[in-house]
Structure formats: structure tokens, C-alpha cells
Design a protein around this nucleic acid. Structure first.
Length: 395
RNA sequence: GGACCCGUGGUGUAGCCUGGUUUAACACGCCUCCCUGUCAAGGAGGAGAUCACCGGUUCAAAUCCGGUCGGGUCCG
């Protein structure tokens, strides 16, 4: 099956749309949320569980798989799908984001402050940058063993082709927030030059390749980047450089400026976004695909998704008040966790540091988000997207 | 009846022998906050102890000495 995308239904009151994405490993009905499986596994879950909770496609990571176990190892074991026993579509990130996220320095990362991405000026005292950006590519230091590596656009595509993903992403420079206009422009221009090199390196046309819009939080840059990426001969586009520390308003502005310049007939992926309100907003603006670590990462930290009145949509299940709660995490949830376990039990598992806790919470959170996007898709089909949005967000 | 061990925040311990560098440390627990293309079963911060009690030695005691109470082990 070759790659194709078709818009099936366009919402009349917004830019929301329903589409069908065909890939060599099956069909994805959009809009769709994809769980993140960085190291060839969605942490704590089996592919069977992923399938059961409704995941249509997952994301894997070039940076991590290149470092461990190595793309050649995975290729020799039959490619990523076979390696991890996931038969459905896979999108691979290019490694750009990770390479730059390491650039902020070890200490900040150790402190959990790593959302300012790719700041090359960063020689503040002992905070040595772990990566160096040049025209040819990025030289970085492995977080695993300190060895030095270089990613170029060509290298990233080569790795992704060996992994055998259905959707490859271009090697881009994800700008940090806040970035000056000058720097954001330089990074965007570099990303555009790298885009051509990615296309040239792209030899296996069974796999598709998506370009990535950059440009920081600047209107002129976003518009320019969106137009540039839109005109590339690739089957899809991504909007990147969001959810890197900017405000929600900034993110919305970025979508506002970028999307009108993107082609109607190509799928649009919004990188790294997964907050409920953000997903509603993005789908309303015409985004088709999402990926985000939040359901799994927050799940492992004991935060479970709920539909609440405060529009926070999550609660910390490890809090004492949940120790004797007999009810499931969320009334009406059809996930495996909610069908079989009480809040009190999952609470206990977290307190006891039992491994099942991570799995049950991840299953719930992923099912919650996948199902919500399913409902959004259904509502678009029926012309009721606005009603669903109002029901959830109140606006 | 005899010998020995122990008594430090909610829990479990470290420190005690070689008194001061202890504003008494650590783990877990508790409370706040954070997490959006995962270096993330992670991170930041906070509350909480008159070191069982009484007395003594000393410039100075959780730390040394005596006694009391409480818990435990072993021997009869």
C-alpha cells in the first residue's frame, strides 16, 4: 500500500476535518493521536495493549534508536515494526528535537529545566552545550556514554529508512523559547536548506517524508516557513517548534499564522502537543495528527486523566484522599484499567512502587486521549464538533 | 532471680565507642509545585524530633556516668 491522504469531511463551521491516511502498514483515520514509543516501546505497554486501547499509529525516535541499539541492529532484525512487534504504522521523529534539547546543558537537564531548546550561545559557566550546530549538521554528545556523534539531514534520513518507518520527519532545528527573531530566522533558514537535503537523501518512496514548519513565535517567519514547507514535494507537513516553553496563546498564534499556508490535501502533524484544550484548538484549526508524551509520562507520575469541571483534566492519584476510593478512575471510561480496578487499588500500586501502576495509568491516559480524539472525529463527521468542544471546554 | 541489648521526626535507621566541624543526617511516608516531537518508574521545594525520663560529670552531652520507666533476647 502506497502512502496517500484524503480529506473525507470538512467541518463547515471551522477548519476541522476528517481524513484517511494510508500507509504501507495500514490506515489511520484522522484526526488521530499517536502514543510516543521513543525507544521502540511505549513505556510499560505491549503492542497488544496499544492496539486494544485504539492506537492507530505510534511514534519512534531516531536519536534514541540510533544510539541504542543502533539502526543497523534494528535493520538486521527486520526493521522497527518487526523488531518491536507493532504491525501498524510508525512515524519516526528525525532526532532534531532531541539533539537540540541536549544543547541546553547537563545541569539544566538534571534540574528538569530542558524546555529551552537548542540555544547555541549557552556557554554560561559550567553549562557546556552538548551539541554544536553547523551548516552540515549537528555534532552532539551521547547522553548514554559521552561519545561524539554527528547528525546531518542525510544521516537522519538514512537512519529512518533503515528503521523502516511509514512516516519519516525531516531533520530540523527546533528553536528554543524565547528565541530572538534573528536566531529563529537563522534556524528556520537552516531548516529549509536541510529540507532539500532530506528530500535528496530520501530514496525509499514506500516511506513518506514530512517537512517541518519552524519560525519561533514570529508571524513573518511562520508564514514564510509554512509557505516554504508547503511547496516541498513531500506527502505531509508538521508544525514544529511549539510546546517548547511558549504560552498557549503563542502556540495558537503559531497555528493561526501557519495553517492557512499549508496545502489542504496533505496531512498536518502538530509535534509534541497533547493537552486537552490544545488538541481541541488544533483540530479546530485543521490539524490531523498529534503526538505527545504526556499521557504516558504523566501517567507514570501518577497523574491520571479525568473529565473534570475545572478544565484541568487530570488528578494526582497518589494523593492520600484516594486511598479508599472504590470507584474507577473515570466514570464511563471503557479502558482496561477502569473496567477492572478501583482508584484505591491503582493508588496503592503507586504508593508501593509496583510496576503495574505505570501500566494501568498509561493505559487509562492513552485510552482517554485516543478515545477523545475519536469522539472529535465522529463529531466532525456529524457536524457537531463545536458542541463537543463546548461540552469539554465550555467555550 | 541473673546476664546482655535497645529506646533518635509518622515508620525504619545513621550518628554514640574517639563529647564541640549537628542549624541532629538518610530512606520511606506526608504536603506543594513542575512535566506538551521522553536523558523522565523523573525533578524542585516544604512540614515534621524538646535525640524515653530524671539526675550527674564537663566550658560543652544524642554522644560519658548513675538511676527510673518502657521494649526485647538469652540463662535459670
Amino acid at each position: 500500500m502506497r502512502f496517500s491522504f484524503r480529506v473525507e469531511k470538512q467541518d463547515t463551521k471551522s477548519n476541522a476535518r476528517v481524513g484517511i491516511l494510508k500507509t504501507p502498514h495500514g490506515v489511520v483515520q484522522t484526526p488521530s493521536f499517536m502514543p510516543v514509543g521513543t525507544k521502540a516501546t511505549v513505556k510499560s505497554l505491549t503492542p497488544e495493549e496499544l492496539k486494544d486501547l485504539g492506537a492507530q499509529i505510534i511514534l519512534g525516535n531516531t536519536y534514541h534508536l540510533y544510539l541504542q541499539p543502533g539502526h543497523k541492529v534494528i535493520a538486521s532484525l527486520g526493521g522497527l515494526h518487526s523488531f518491536m512487534n507493532w504491525k501498524k504504522p510508525i512515524l519516526t521523529d528525525s532526532g532534531g528535537f532531541q539533539v537540540f534539547s541536549l544543547g541546553v546543558g547537563k545541569r539544566k537537564v538534571a534540574q528538569g529545566i530542558h524546555r529551552g531548546i537548542g540555544r547555541p550561545e549557552s556557554s554560561e559557566g559550567d553549562e557546556k552545550s552538548l551539541c554544536e550546530i553547523q551548516e552540515v549538521g549537528v555534532t552532539f554528545t551521547s547522553h548514554l556514554d559521552g561519545t561524539t556523534h554527528t547528525f546531518t539531514p542525510e544521516k537522519s534520513i538514512e537512519i529512518q529508512q533503515q528503521l523502516g518507518s511509514d512516516i519519516m520527519l525531516m531533520f530540523d532545528e527546533c528553536t528554543y523559547f524565547p528565541a530572538t527573531h534573528e536566531y529563529a530566522k537563522a534556524a528556520m533558514d537552516r531548516t529549509h536548506r536541510w529540507a532539500s537535503r532530506c528530500i535528496n537523501a530520501w530514496t525509499d518512496k514506500e516511506q513518506s517524508l514530512f517537512g517541518i514548519v519552524q519560525g519561533g513565535v514570529y508571524r513573518d517567519l511562520r508564514e514564510e516557513s509554512a509557505r516554504f514547507i508547503a511547496h516541498l514535494d513531500t506527502p505531509g507537513v508538521c508544525i514544529g517548534g511549539v510546546s517548547v516553553g511558549e504560552s498557549k496563546k503563542d502556540m495558537r498564534d503559531v497555528l493561526e499564522w501557519s495553517i492557512p499556508h499549508l496545502p489542504e490535501n496533505k496531512p498536518r502533524h502538530l509535534l509534541g502537543v497533547g493537552d486537552i484544550d490544545d488538541v481541541f484548538d488544533a483540530i479546530e484549526r485543521g490539524i490531523d495528527l498529534f503526538d505527545c508524551v504526556s499521557p504516558t509520562r504523566l501517567g507514570r507520575m501518577g497523574h491520571v486523566f479525568i473529565k473534570d469541571s475545572e478544565k484541568r483534566f487530570r488528578t494526582d492519584i497518589t494523593k492520600s484522599l484516594y486511598s479508599r476510593e472504590k470507584k474507577p478512575i473515570m466514570k464511563g471510561c471503557d479502558c482496561y484499567t477502569c473496567l477492572h480496578y478501583s482508584v484505591g487499588y491503582v493508588h496503592h500500586l503507586f504508593r508501593a512502587h509496583e510496576l503495574l501502576a505505570y501500566r494501568l495509568a498509561s493505559i487509562h491516559n492513552l485510552r482517554f486521549l485516543v478515545r477523545l480524539v475519536d469522539e472529535m472525529r465522529e463529531s466532525i463527521q456529524q457536524g457537531a464538533f463545536h458542541h463537543l468542544k463546548k461540552e469539554w471546554l465550555g467555550t
